[in-house]
Design a protein around this nucleic acid. Structure first.
Ligand SMILES: [Zn+2]
Ligand SMILES: [Zn+2]
Ligand SMILES: [Zn+2]
Ligand SMILES: [Zn+2]
Lengths: 152, 152
DNA sequence: CTTGACTTTGGAGTAGACTCCAGGGTTTAT
DNA sequence: ATAAACCCTGGAGTCTACTCCAAAGTCAAG
């Protein structure tokens, strides 16, 4: 299935695509195994050959990765991208908005953690003497709930 | 090695400790395998027996977990807790402060991601019509660098 | 023609924090 | 005494996104 006649004129091998994209050949094969990026064709020896279309595609993948999408999510995005005509902006935007909400939650959780750690740090003298009296150790010993309760 | 005579009077089995701590027995065995929490002794049948000391210890572990420490880090914290006299507040506080800085970095990265996603979302009409013109798909197709460059 | 760089496959290993399972033995309540 | 509920061990499986490997075939330069 060499298919799209005009698309597959300037074909590159996996090493070249890897260099173009700034990833390893292993990564490209891994993406292929996961249905993200298939070569346009193979040569007689079985070498993978990629066309401009695939160069474009890996750019899309890496772009989506850089804004925090998982490979699974990128799979969905690619599905929409491929059949753009049948999909709607609504569909696309929904994926982005769901991701935003997950990211927000993770930020909130990390901020909570940061706050707790800061309270611990601030309460500790950080001095050279034995830690027998250390407020951090005491707070941790108090347990997760008591810690919050006795925070103030 | 049943050791500490007075410490091991009221002993509980693993299921009880699990309930007290709100974790599974599997988790307790996992923590033991990782050197975080060993039973005080075993009964004739080989059942794990835990004393108040271990109840305290799992409270410490869960407390540390709740403020974002990994099990590996908790291992270090426990080492300090156990030999409190030889350790200093400085040692303890350093672990907390290192963690704070890691958490800060992760928050920053997530905020960057959130910002990028928000830009994508805001630019998309989110409508019902075909996504052939969708700005999100276009932006992702532009690649990670171009996206940033043409953001404004 | 030879050497070295490149490519193929399948499969294993990594980190983190568990979870689940099989195939046993034990305890407890009735 | 018997069933339910508990406990033991060792090991495998989960999820993510790769990375590394060996053994073998292929291509390009000199
Ligand atoms: Zn101090
Ligand atoms: Zn201190
Ligand atoms: Zn639109
Ligand atoms: Zn759109």
């Amino acid at each position: 299935m060499v298919s799209n006649g005009s698309e597959c004129r300037r074909l590159v091998k996996i090493g070249t695509l890897a260099q173009l994209a700034g990833v390893s050949t292993d990564t490209l094969r891994f993406y292929e195994k996961n249905g993200l990026l298939a070569p346009c064709s193979r040569n007689a020896a079985g070498y993978r050959l990629y066309s401009a279309r695939e160069v474009q595609r890996i750019r899309f993948i890496l772009s989506a990765k850089s804004v925090g999408f998982t490979l699974k999510e990128i799979h969905e995005l690619l599905a929409l991208e491929v059949r753009r005509e049948q999909a709607s902006c609504e569909d696309v935007k929904q994926l982005v908005d769901e991701k935003i909400s997950v990211v927000r939650q993770r930020i909130a959780e990390l901020q909570r953690i940061q706050g707790s750690l800061q309270i611990l740090s601030d309460a500790c003298c950080g001095g050279d003497e034995p830690a027998s009296h250390c407020t951090i150790l005491e707070a941790l010993n108090a347990g997760p709930d008591e810690r919050l309760a006795t925070e103030e």
